[in-house]
Design a protein around this nucleic acid. Structure first.
Lengths: 347, 347
DNA sequence: ACTCCCCTTGGGAGCGCTCCCAAGCCTACG
DNA sequence: CGTAGGCTTGGGAGCGCTCCCAAGGGGAGT
């Protein structure tokens, strides 16, 4: 049995560390897990043994014995990875990675396709015993969040599904971001300010529209519904919406698009209609993506602190995991991170 | 002990499935792992029990008993996640996810910072017992690949470190991509064709330069070294290189930049110098990123099949893992995927 | 000086699964 | 009719670790 299996290193076990340090397995375990119930002298001996042997605990054994995994899953709706191929994805990951850096936690990346798969996913996640789940880009009717909640799996959601989100959530301030964009238009003397919205079943898109409305109203401008063109976050959708706007209100002199990509579509249409940006029509996007920086003219855009969202989500999740067995009545954190208007030449 | 721990579901175990099906644990295990050494009748009984109980195997137990993990790690150099925030990262992940979809394999995402961390990483990866490693964006002097190779950990590398790469690798055809770009210039009558290179310690960048040289030579053009400007993949570097080119060869009428981002920098400088694109100077980038599509004018660019690279890498890795215990002498696959010139208005 | 209590420590009992051996059964063959 | 050999099958022995209990040692208190 012993030498039968050709293992690369023959990793040392806790037992071996304990033997080397001249202590029992339990004591060695205590040292490794930072329990305070160990004398300084013993601790040193064990630590020395760990160093000498290059011991690294076996995760599987830990997970099995401890009924936890020291791993969290980042669930990404696969259908959308392309959609948010923009910095979003990688920035979130960086944030999560940063927050996990000093932890023993591992990050599991899970791509979930359609709803059926997501349903299966819930059972997988609990069976594979992930300690917690990070949910990114969730639709209002996604079944997964509720499933996870029922299963008592600690979870944090990016954005929200609706105003009454029950899960802990970390969102950016879509409302204020939109408002800042429109206020910016107003302060520069624009009066016929339109908006191209994202899919309004996405809470964030709704909030951006709310912010737009609020800014218009606060400024005492005429809230013309013809200045609101719904789209779907796509470039083509943005172009289509822009065309509609030009028909309905040819005098439009500013457009706030709820995403940079839609702004790119709008820009195209504005160009084709012979309008100059920003001279004739000012344009602002949302996301502050690479598209914004490289657009011609460079696009003013609302920046979301995406990496920070990833970091915060992770911190909140770790907290939730730590509180797991605690009072179920602890209130769920709902964090809203500030957005920032990055002014470039399009406005 | 039994009901002491408040577990969400009280997941069924193999033992319970076996009891329910009226068979032994071993038999149940065989069915679940698709062993052929089970009678059809028994198989059905076990499968029924699995379905009724909603049994899902416990990964940790499996890993511990089977000395494998059914997980692979995607190692991303953290310092570069921003650098390749462009489609790259998410496309790779999609490809990997797609290849893993029908598998039981999980994907572990590991961000490794500097070299020291990467060194530690090797021991972690083996201790956490990942079955294999996907290495993305590796520098020529990265210690990790060799460490993994020594440890006998199945690994696949994207791109290569150098011509004599020892690890299994999946790369895109940088050489042909570059050549196609330059050939395209030539076919459109350009004669003073320059190139802005990436960091030449990156093998891919070197190959792109080779392709450029080859195309120039094949066409019988004068291979003027002044037409070759080294840069570092950054926008600012691209701009700097372009300025140099304009000084050295003011008559340049075409520029092949080894990345879209550098092309964006070059475009800026060309604009400032009063040159029109493509009328005065044609421009081609590499990557076919969002930047290319949204540039003004839209940038002709060499597309790499990134998602497919992710898929292929994964398949190769799974194969390597399957062959693990086999002959060590099996040759290492080195796959090169074709690139494609996407012609837009800048050329 | 004796007792009580707290701090440390060792190690048994699993966690749920895979691996493998030995046993039971049936079929085919001599 | 006996026996060899192939299929299936059950279940013991761990995998390496955490949890927890009981035991041993001191120090403080009276």
């Amino acid at each position: 049995m012993a030498a039968a299996r050709v293992r690369s290193g023959g990793r040392p076990t806790l037992e071996e560390v304990a033997a080397r340090a001249g202590v029992g397995r339990g004591t060695a375990s205590r040292v490794i897990n930072g329990s305070p119930r160990v004398s300084a002298q013993t601790r040193e001996a064990v630590e020395a043994a760990v160093a000498e042997l290059g011991y690294v605990p076996n995760r599987a054994a830990r997970a099995l014995a401890g009924n936890r995994t020291d791993a969290i899953a980042l669930v990404v709706p696969e259908s959308e990875t392309r959609f948010f191929a923009e910095p979003y994805f990688s920035d979130i990951v960086r944030g999560v990675g940063a927050a996990l850096a000093d932890t023993e936690m591992q990050l599991l990346l899970t791509l979930a396709g359609n709803d059926r798969e997501r349903r299966r996913l819930a059972s997988y996640l609990t069976a594979h015993r992930v300690d917690g789940v990070l949910l990114v880009s969730v639709h209002a009717d996604d079944p997964l969040p509720d499933l996870l909640e029922q299963l008592g799996m600690p979870s944090v959601i990016s954005g929200r599904r609706h105003a009454a989100e029950t899960l802990p959530s970390v969102d950016s301030d879509n409302f204020e971001g939109a408002r800042a964009a429109v206020d910016h238009f107003i302060s520069r003397g624009r009066r016929s300010i339109a908006t191209i919205t994202g899919r309004l079943d996405v809470y964030g898109a709704q909030r951006r529209l709310d912010g737009y409305r609020k800014a218009i109203a606060s400024a005492g401008l005429d809230p013309d519904e013809r200045l609101i063109a719904p789209a779907d976050f796509s470039e083509e959708g943005g172009a289509r919406a822009m065309r509609e706007l030009l028909v309905r209100r040819p005098d439009v002199d500013a457009v706030f698009a709820a995403s940079d990509v839609m702004a790119a579509g709008a820009r195209q249409v504005l160009r084709e209609s012979g309008r100059r940006i920003p001279d004739d029509v000012a344009l602002i996007g949302f996301d502050d993506s690479a598209v914004a920086r490289h657009m011609d003219p460079p696009l003013t855009s609302v920046r979301q602190p995406i990496e920070e969202m990833g970091r915060t989500m992770t911190r909140v999740l770790l907290q939730e995991i730590a509180n797991r067995s605690e009072d179920r009545a602890v209130e769920r954190p709902r964090i809203v991170l500030p957005t920032e208007l990055v002014v470039r030449e399009s406005s």
